[in-house]
Design a protein around this nucleic acid. Structure first.
Lengths: 221, 221
DNA sequence: TGAAACTTTTAAGAAACCCTTAAGAAAGCA
DNA sequence: TGCTTTCTTAAGGGTTTCTTAAAAGTTTCA
């Protein structure tokens, strides 16, 4: 875990840096707004601790510039400015948390942990298979990077096959997955959708196992 | 924006609920830990405000159970317990922020905005997407720099979509966000608002994913 | 080789889905 | 209160997708 500490007071800065180091953080300690911006641009931090009373420029400006530069790192403001209005301003300019000096070190540590925990919860699960790529979050599919629209059933069928790339599914099993029980379907729907998918994504996308059913095509080509 | 407020004190609870409603939040107010858990499981909230001194069980247990149930909603603890140790415990059990009573309402609002912002993919306090720009702090929207008035539900709907630009939301999910439990709606409201938004902001602002729901339009044009 | 079994392709009517409009109800405001 | 804006509901019409069936094609095996 890597932290950028922006604090011009030497004594306080050293104290925080020591405490962080003791908690096994990697600490980069800078004392001016200018340095803060260049460090934040140069390297990826897990959290930035920002004092507002800096010698060269106001911390709020630094904050804003960081956000304008698309630096999304969580930022915790640590300052003597304690009025409600100041807190609101700081948070609304893009800070993630705000602590007033004098502060309690264990609380700071706990707030840093909370920020990190949030950040690490980012998840994106994109499924790929050969040339195709499925993004379940938006039900979209692309092949060689080009988006290809699929209808609902086409998408469902493909997703089922792709979830178990090596399994052969019987027609009945696929119908069972695609439909709920009370509106069973009594014809060759599956064949028709396989046909549609092959038309859109290429003949080899789905392999037919004669007498048994269908299987996702092999990825190797 | 939908908030679950867990607070057993009737006076204080009413005060917070009113303040939140005034800020256009959809508020679900419950008074026990048990209710908190069932509501959190039943619907998707943007933030949970949690009092620790509940009548039926300790708020920290509620917090832990929520996290165990894989409810990742940001949680802000709002309590009279003000020692450093109590704050550390609360944050380390999975809360995202911690405020001590008595508290300042504007600060609470700013912290809620910060929590939401963190959760959305947008990190700056002013949200932009293509030609439009939203400032959640004062509910304003502009396109190409020109302010465009939106009704409350139009605004809510757009804000939801814009918070996760790549996700497709089903009609049901959107209805769930736009209304609280006791005045559910039973018709095509979402379609109608989508239509209004498209009329005001252009056809491509919202994309429909047939059979699934709606998604923010792509920014590239 | 020829029949049987199985699979692919095509096409068209049916169904589902979404958009649009409008009007009465409700809520907000002076 | 009366006026204006916003909300909810419902219905019509246009479009896409689904289902079905039948014809055409392919593989298997006696």
């Amino acid at each position: 875990m890597k932290i950028l500490l922006v604090e011009d007071d030497p004594l306080l800065g050293q104290g925080i840096a020591d405490a962080l180091t003791y908690q096994s953080y990697i600490v980069e300690w800078v004392k001016t707004g200018k340095q803060a911006i260049s460090f934040a641009n140069a390297s990826q931090f897990d959290v930035i601790i920002l004092d507002l009373g800096l010698p060269d420029r106001d911390g709020l400006d630094v904050l804003q510039e960081l956000r304008n530069n698309k630096i999304l790192t969580p930022i915790l403001i640590l300052t003597a400015r304690s009025t409600s209005g100041e807190k609101v301003t700081g948070l609304d300019r893009g800070a993630d948390d705000y602590m007033v000096k004098p502060f309690d070190v264990p609380e700071l540590m706990a707030r840093l942990r909370a920020l990190q925990r949030r950040e690490s919860q980012q998840k994106s699960s994109i499924i790929t298979h050969g040339s195709i790529e499925i993004n379940p979050a938006n039900f979209s599919l692309s092949q060689y990077g080009k988006p290809i629209p699929l209808s609902r059933h086409e998408y469902d069928l493909l997703l089922h096959l792709i979830n178990r790339p090596n399994q052969v599914f019987s027609r009945e099993a696929l119908v069972d997955k695609l439909y709920n029980w009370d509106n069973e379907v009594s014809s060759n729907t599956v064949e028709v959708y396989v046909h549609h998918l092959r038309k859109k994504l290429g003949k080899d996308i789905i392999k037919t196992v004669r007498g048994i059913g269908y299987q996702l095509g092999s990825t190797s080509e």
